[in-house]
């Protein structure tokens, strides 16, 4: 009886259940980040990985295609993580952008953002083709995922890709983000990542804000603002280019 009342409450307030649940997930992720990885692996990356893992486990147990949202108690996750809130929150991140920063980044800094988006997209697209995909929508979504785990799903949703392809694009972006966090301090010396200009170029090329911030923090904390400055523009440029010009190029190329 007590459980029935609780389930009835949860069903009526599914979005609030989702807020509570995601909040707890993120709290655990940041604890894991701090205590297990000493902050090397950013809490946000761990949280997204847990999200994908939960989607996998739920899919296995329910046989459904909507991950955790197929479990009735967590149906609100589909609203919270749905297209409307996703676009709303991503657009909001543009508010923190300072156009003056672009001037500071200079020609090379700005070029690095565009080169970074196009380079990662192309690499992802080529990998998708080499794995046998021929649908331009799928190729573009995976290419966009290789840019960041934001650009991937935004592109996939805009082009009408299926949920499993969007999951792949999130996973590709997540691999990139985690790899940037871990490998930056290891390769920093070899590639001359020890001054503000290099940090701005690096931020523009990599684009994953969480990866860049955590990677630079482990290399030289003084460089974080320079890398973050260009990285924040990357997602916007990616959301603009990937589901438009880059997708159309893929359509042309795939005939």
């Amino acid at each position: 009886m007590i459980l029935d009342a609780l389930y009835a409450l949860a069903a009526k307030n599914s979005l609030l259940v989702a807020f509570t649940f995601v909040g707890i997930t993120i709290w655990i992720s940041y604890k894991l980040s701090k205590h297990l990885t000493k902050g090397r692996l950013h809490g946000s990356a761990i949280a997204i990985a847990i999200g994908l893992l939960l989607a996998y486990l739920s899919g296995k147990s329910t046989g459904g295609s909507k991950g955790l949202a197929d479990i009735e108690l967590f149906s609100g996750v589909a609203i919270m993580g749905g297209g409307m809130f996703r676009d709303f929150a991503i657009v909001a991140t543009a508010f923190g952008v300072h156009v003056e920063d672009l001037k500071k980044a200079g020609v090379v800094g700005i070029a690095s953002i565009f080169i970074g988006v196009i380079l990662s997209f192309s690499v992802g697209a080529i990998v998708a083709v080499s794995f046998g995909y021929t649908d331009p929508v799928i190729i573009s979504t995976i290419g966009a995922g290789a840019a960041t785990y934001i650009v991937g799903p935004v592109t996939g949703a805009a082009l009408g890709a299926s949920s499993d392809i969007i999951a792949l694009s999130i996973a590709a972006g997540l691999v990139k983000s985690i790899l940037v966090m871990i490998s930056t301090p290891l390769v920093a010396n070899k590639i001359g990542l020890n001054n503000p200009t290099a940090a701005m170029i690096y931020g523009g090329l990599m684009g994953t804000t969480s990866g860049v911030s955590a990677g630079l923090a482990a290399t030289d904390p003084k460089l974080v603002p320079y890398g973050a400055m260009t990285a924040t523009f990357y997602t916007g440029v990616g959301c603009l280019l990937a589901p438009s010009v880059l997708y159309l190029i893929i359509v042309q190329l795939m005939g």
């Binding site: 949202a69 589909a78 996703r86 995976i142 999951a167």
Partner: peptide
Amino acid sequence: PIIVAMAAKQNAVAALAAGPVALTAG
């Protein structure tokens, strides 16, 4: 948080079947 919710509602089972493509691309 919204991206975490978005990740949690994807068809990850179907995606894992094609897993290496995400790893390689990243």
